[in-house]
Design a protein around this nucleic acid. Structure first.
Lengths: 359, 359
DNA sequence: CTGTTAGCGCATTCAG
DNA sequence: CTGAATGCGCTAACAG
C-alpha cells in the first residue's frame, strides 16, 4: 500500500533506468518521450525523492540552522520572518534551536546544528565571545551573527549606536537638556553600551551620571548644560517599573527607555502616580513594537526593521555559500517614529489631538 | 584540511571494525578495552556521525515538522517554546514552515515537510478543512493539530468555548447585563464561533444581535434582560479601534474583545474620546498577553497557556510515534486574570488604587 | 562480544 | 542521449 516508492520503481514502471529518472529529477539530458514516460510514472506512484539519500550523495542539505535566544518575542519573530522570506524561495529550510539567552547554549546549538548537516548557520546572539569566534571558524561553515557584533566575524545587525544617536539628537532638538537613560547592563554590548553611547553622543554629553538606589542629591536648580543620568534596569517592564521612582526623582524633562518594553513599564508607573506624559515628563523608547502605537500617550520611538535584518542575514549566508562577497549596506533598517510621548520644550504645551493609531 | 572524518577512519585508527564503532555510538555491546580505543579515536579525529547517512538507514529523522500561521506573534512563540521544551529532551529537532495564514499553504507545508522526511507534524491551523483531514491520513505520519478542532483528528487546543463561558459567567456575576462582543469572523471556528458561543451561554443569552455600520436604534431605556450585541472586527487593533464607535453607540456596560489585541484597540479609542474604563464602560479581553498588565487600566482577561498547549501537542506526536495512546486532559491551560478594566455594577464605583503590575 | 556482509535511495561517472 | 556500475556513510543482520 503506502510502501514508500523509490526511484527504482518509478524507473521500472516507466521502462527506463534509474539514472534516467534521476536525470529527469535534476537538470535534464532526457529525451522528450522518456521525459513524458517518467513524468507519468511519477504522477502515478506519487513518488517523492528521499531527502536523506539525496543529501547523503550531494553533501548539500539545503538546511540553514538558526540559533535564537528565545521564541516568545516579536522581534525574534520578525527576524525569522525575514530569514524565511529569502531562504524559502532559494529552496532552503530552517532548523531552529533556542539558546534561552545562554551564551554557552549558543555554542552547543551551533555544534549540534553542524552535526545535523546544515549548510550554514545564523546566530542571533546575546553576546559574542572569543569562543564563538573560534567555533565559527572551526565549523568550516558559513556563519552569520546578528544581535551583536564582533570583529572579524560576519555580523548583520541594527545600528544601535546610530539609533541612540538619532534619538539623542532628536531630543536635543526638541529642547531637552536633562534626560534619564533607562538602560540595561553593559554586559550587553549592543543595547547596553552602543545604544547608550550613541544616545550620549547625540545628546551632546560626555558621560552619564550613574544612579543607584541610594539617595541621590536632587538637583536644586534647573539643569542648564545637557545632562544624562543613567539607571540600570532589566529588559522586562516590571524591573523598569520598579526603578521609575528613582528616575523621576531626578526631575528630568525626558526619560529614555533602552527598549519599548522598558518604556512601557515606565509609562505605567508614571500613570499610577498621576503624572502626565508628556506634560510632566517625556518618554521615549527603542524598537518600534506595535503596542507602542495603542498605549496612551503613543510612544515616540526608534523603530527597527528586524525583518530586513533577517533578510540581510539570510542573504549573507547564501552569498557565503556561493562564495560571493557579502554585501553589507543597503536600506537602513531604522527610523524615528514621532508619536505623542515627547513634548517640545520652550513652547507652551498644547495637548495634541489624538489622531488615531500611528503604526 | 577538514576532510570530513567518517566512521571508517575512526575504525582504522582504533584498530577495530566499523560495526564496533557503530555499536559504540548506539547501544553498547562493546568490551571495555575496545570502548576505550574507540573513544580515543573519536576524540582525536573529532568525528561526528553523518546525520544523513544515519537517517537513510534508520528511517527515523528525529525531525518534527511544525506549520505555523505566522512567526511574529507572541502566542505562536510560546507555542513553539512549549513544543521545543518536550521535543528537545527527547532528541528531536524542529523544522519550521510558515503558512502565512493561508489554508492552502498549510497543506503545501505539510506535504513539503513529509518529503523532508520528518517523523511527525504539528499544524497550528487557521482552519481545518476536509482536505486537511484527508492529507493527514494520506501522510501516514503522526499529525497533531492545534489552534482549531476537527472531528476524527488529533487536536490539542485551548478550550475556546470554556474560555468564553468563563468570561460570560464572570461578567454576569459582576452585575453586567448588556455586553458588546467584539469578535472575529465566523470563518474562524475556534475564536469566531466557539469563543463567542461560550460567551453567550455563560452570559445567559440565546443569541447575539448582529450590528453593522448602518444606523442601529440605540436602546432608549436601560436593558433589563441580558443582552449581547455583536460587532465583527479583524484580529488587529486598528480594525477594532475603527469599530469602537459603533460598539459604544450601543451603551453597553461592558465591551468584550475576542482577543487582547482587539481590546487594546478599543481601549485606545475610548481613551481618545475621553471615556473612562471601567467607570464609563468595562472592557475585557482573551489571551493574557503580557502588555495587558501595563496598559491602564490593566486588562481583565482570560489567559491561555500556549506553552502548555505546545508541550501537550509535542507530547501527543511523541506518543503517536511510540504507538501510545494520546492523553488529552491534564492541567487546564486557561484562567481568568482579574485586573482593573472591569467594574462591578450595582455598587458605587470606587476607583481602585493601582497596585503595580499584575502579570 | 566482534568482524563480515549487505544494502538504505540516490547521483554520478563511464561506456555505449 | 541512456543504462550499468559505483559508492555516499552508516546500521543491522549474520556468522563467528
Amino acid at each position: 500500500m503506502d510502501h514508500k516508492v523509490t526511484i527504482k520503481e518509478v524507473a521500472e514502471l516507466a521502462g527506463v533506468s534509474k539514472s534516467t529518472v534521476s536525470r529527469y529529477l535534476n537538470r535534464g539530458y532526457v529525451s522528450e518521450e522518456k521525459r513524458e514516460l517518467v513524468r507519468a510514472a511519477i504522477a502515478q506512484t506519487g513518488f517523492k525523492s528521499n531527502f536523506f539519500a539525496k543529501r547523503l550523495k550531494t553533501k548539500e542539505s539545503k538546511l540553514i540552522g538558526i540559533v535564537l535566544p528565545r521564541m516568545d518575542s516579536v522581534t525574534v519573530g520578525k527576524l525569522l520572518m525575514g530569514i524565511n522570506r529569502v531562504l524559502d524561495p532559494a529552496g532552503y529550510q530552517v532548523l531552529v534551536q533556542v539558546s534561552q539567552l545562554s551564551q554557552r547554549r549558543e555554542l552547543e546549538a551551533m555544534r549540534s546544528l553542524q552535526q545535523q548537516g546544515v549548510d550554514g548557520i545564523i546566530v542571533d546572539s546575546v553576546g559574542i565571545t572569543d569562543e564563538h569566534a573560534l567555533l565559527a571558524r572551526e565549523l568550516t561553515l558559513p556563519v552569520v551573527f546578528t544581535g551583536q557584533e564582533y570583529g572579524g566575524l560576519t555580523c548583520i545587525k541594527v545600528d544601535d549606536y546610530g539609533a541612540g544617536h538619532l534619538m539623542g539628537a532628536f531630543l536635543r532638538q526638541m529642547g531637552h537638556t536633562h534626560a534619564v537613560f533607562a538602560g540595561v547592563s553593559e554586559t550587553d554590548k549592543a543595547v547596553g553600551r552602543e545604544r547608550k553611547q550613541g544616545f550620549l553622543d547625540g545628546f551632546g554629553v560626555k558621560e552619564a551620571h550613574n544612579l543607584t538606589d541610594e539617595a541621590v542629591p536632587v538637583p536644586s536648580h534647573p539643569v542648564t548644560t545637557p545632562q544624562v543620568d543613567f539607571v540600570e534596569t532589566g529588559f522586562d517592564f516590571l524591573s523598569a517599573y520598579d526603578k521609575t521612582a528613582l528616575m523621576w526623582a531626578q526631575q528630568p524633562s525626558v526619560i529614555v527607555g533602552a527598549t519599548d518594553n522598558i518604556s512601557l513599564g515606565i509609562l505605567r508607573y508614571l500613570h499610577e502616580r498621576g503624572l502626565h506624559v508628556p506634560e510632566d515628563v517625556s518618554v521615549t523608547g527603542f524598537g518600534g513594537y506595535e503596542v507602542g502605537a495603542v498605549v496612551y500617550p503613543a510612544l515616540t520611538t526608534v523603530a527597527f526593521d528586524f525583518e530586513l535584518i533577517g533578510m540581510k542575514a539570510a542573504q549573507a549566508v547564501l552569498d557565503m555559500l556561493h562564495d560571493e562577497a557579502v554585501c553589507l549596506g543597503g536600506p537602513e533598517p531604522m527610523h524615528l517614529i514621532q508619536r505623542e510621548s515627547v513634548r517640545e520644550l520652550g513652547k507652551p504645551f498644547v495637548p495634541e489631538q489624538s489622531t488615531g493609531i500611528t503604526l
